[in-house]
Design a binder for these strands. Structure first.
Lengths: 122, 122
DNA sequence: GTGGGCCGTTAGTTGACACTTACGTAAGGA
DNA sequence: TCCTTACGTAAGTGTCAACTAACGGCCCAC
């Protein structure tokens, strides 16, 4: 997981993953979409492959790449662990609490409209 | 999201998030659990707070920190996007295809067992 | 075998970042 | 007021990672 999160920390690499998410592309095709040189992209591809986020397939002289979503399982579980049902409920409760505090009297939409008209006095 | 993913790319910072995931801790209490110096931890806390992953609350001379899961929403959605139902189906299809290609004749498990016994010759 | 695409790899440079020591600051008790 | 506690901040250093230019290795057509 350490390698996966470091791999997607780089914007170019995230963009590469988006490119090959649902189609196979060659190294050259991928490189042609970036401003950096082809070797730089090649190094990014190596990092992504070593992190288990990319599949490589050789066809003649070309190398075709495709995203490998299973490589992100660990990281996804880490993040989702911070988003458990309990926390989701806590967050919703906090938001409702905040809304109640901001507008303690308003009940219908008419009140809101009046407020908007008054607030136009900038 | 860029700042969030760079923030959790550092192992110490991921550990900090785990520590304050469901309880509030002071900067000093957090620092005491690491080998690095207190200023180093303080810098990590700043990075996490600036990335929106941490809430800070002052109480007297102490500063209390707690995880803020909403800060990871974007990143979670990015990762979960690679795990959609469609891709899951594509993955299964690809694996079945590969299995068919690898063992076009084998039908039962007997063949596999024989292979294992032969491979024990290390 | 030879020439031309397609790519990965190496060497070297530059910038980012994690860390340490030293210092500054705010709150609170003696 | 003075000291202590609990922090953050500044300055400086070493390491790692992203990039470029130059080079080397396959694979195929001829």
């Amino acid at each position: 997981m350490d390698s996966a999160v470091r791999a997607i920390a780089e914007p170019h690499r995230r963009e590469i993953l988006r490119l090959v998410r649902d189609r196979e592309l060659s190294a050259g095709e991928i490189a042609s979409r970036f401003d950096v040189t082809r070797p730089a992209v090649s190094q990014h591809l190596t990092v992504l492959r070593d992190a288990g986020l990319l599949n490589e397939r050789r066809e003649g002289t070309r190398r075709l790449y495709r995203a490998r979503p299973e490589g992100m399982t660990e990281l996804r579980e880490f993040l989702n662990g911070f988003w458990s049902d309990r926390l989701k409920r806590l967050k919703l409760a906090a938001e409702l609490e905040q809304q109640r505090r901001k507008s303690p009297k308003r009940r219908s939409e008419k009140g809101a409209k009046r407020r908007n008209r008054r607030d136009r006095r900038t």
